[in-house]
């Protein structure tokens, strides 16, 4: 009897220990995010104090080596916006269609080949994508479309779309497959066709997962550095209209990557790059929060 209690106690201690350990692991994630935010803020503060926010965020010229130096981030933010928006415009319809095919339409054998193939796309290093874009796709597109130069925003979008595809396909396919079979059967029983079932019953039910997939894809696209650094030309100009997609742009990530390595420690330029990083973090934080809210609301309506 006593032995039994001892064993039970031991199990309790064990349970308690595991619980606390997982709790620490969970809290650590929050601590890390807060620390990253704090350090970015600390190193961005000097430049935020020196220049008015309107000049940093609204300035149209980024030329850190000019005299006097100018840290207008508008061209960089718009550059990121163009490249990312373009990537999503390409990747979301394609990814969603691919996910529907894999989850709903494809026979089992095709599905078993297709899904690993799409996921393999995620295993290709970004620098390889960059090389493909810079040396093959860019010059080819420039030649076919009669563009003056083979490095432009839409090329970045195109390649980022391929890179975001595995995330979008994988996550939304899981969401679609998680839709209960009963829902499909009900829809079919009511006389709906396969296509009607997919787009009116299954996809709305999988909505929150699909939104999550798109947001993850967005995160991948906006944070990607190496590829955009290689293929978008990095000219810090403000893109204008639809033609802006066919012109070189410079993204925030590419700016940090290209300039941080050789910037003298603690100069205004150095701090300005941290400010760019801070704004990038705020943007991703904002999109994630919005996504979270949307997903939660969609979940509530769905149920």
């Amino acid at each position: 009897m006593r032995k039994h209690i001892a064993a039970k106690n031991r199990r309790h201690v064990w349970e308690w220990l595991i619980e606390r350990l997982t709790q620490i692991a969970g809290l650590l994630a929050i601590v890390f995010v807060l620390l990253i935010f704090a350090f970015l803020l600390r190193d961005a503060l000097p430049v935020l104090a020196q220049y008015p926010l309107s000049e940093l965020l609204g300035g149209t010229r980024w030329s850190p080596t000019a005299e006097p130096e100018k840290f207008g981030m508008l061209p960089l933010m718009l550059g990121s916006l163009y490249v990312t928006a373009g990537a999503l415009l390409l990747a979301v319809p394609l990814g969603l269609a691919c996910a529907v095919f894999v989850a709903e339409v494809a026979p089992k054998r095709v599905r078993e080949m297709l899904k690993p193939a799409v996921e393999l796309l995620a295993a290709i290093p970004s620098v390889v994508f960059g090389f493909l874009g810079l040396l093959l796709i860019g010059p080819w597109l420039a030649d076919k479309l009669d563009l003056p130069i083979g490095q432009f925003a839409a090329l970045g979008s195109l390649i980022l779309a391929f890179m975001a595809l595995p995330t979008i396909v994988s996550v939304s396919e899981d969401a679609i497959r998680a839709v209960p079979v009963a829902l499909r059967e009900n829809s079919l029983a009511l006389g709906a066709t396969d296509w009607q079932t997919i787009c009116r019953a299954v996809l709305p039910a999988a909505r929150s997962g699909i939104i999550a997939a798109v947001m993850l894809g967005l995160g991948r696209a906006i944070g990607e550095t190496m590829t955009v650094l290689m293929v978008t030309g990095n000219a810090a100009v403000i893109p204008r209209g639809l033609l802006g997609f066919l012109r070189p742009v410079r993204t925030m990530t590419a700016t940090i990557a290209a300039e941080m390595g050789e910037t003298a420690f603690r100069t205004p330029h150095y701090h300005a790059l941290f400010a760019v990083g801070l704004i990038l973090l705020l943007i991703t934080f904002l999109t994630n929060t919005i996504a979270d809210v949307v997903v939660r609301r969609a979940g509530r309506v769905g149920s």
């Binding site: 010229r61 810079l134 420039a142 003056p148 083979g150 990095n234 000219a235 100009v237």
Partner: peptide
């Protein structure tokens, strides 16, 4: 004339090799 600076439209390449590749690929470069 220290006021003069590179045009904003200038493409920025990370290495000599990248400049070489871009110029070799671009007729008006």
């Amino acid at each position: 004339d220290k006021e003069r600076d590179y045009a904003a439209e200038a493409l920025k390449q990370a290495s000599n090799q990248a400049v070489l590749t871009s110029v070799a690929q671009t007729k008006a470069a």
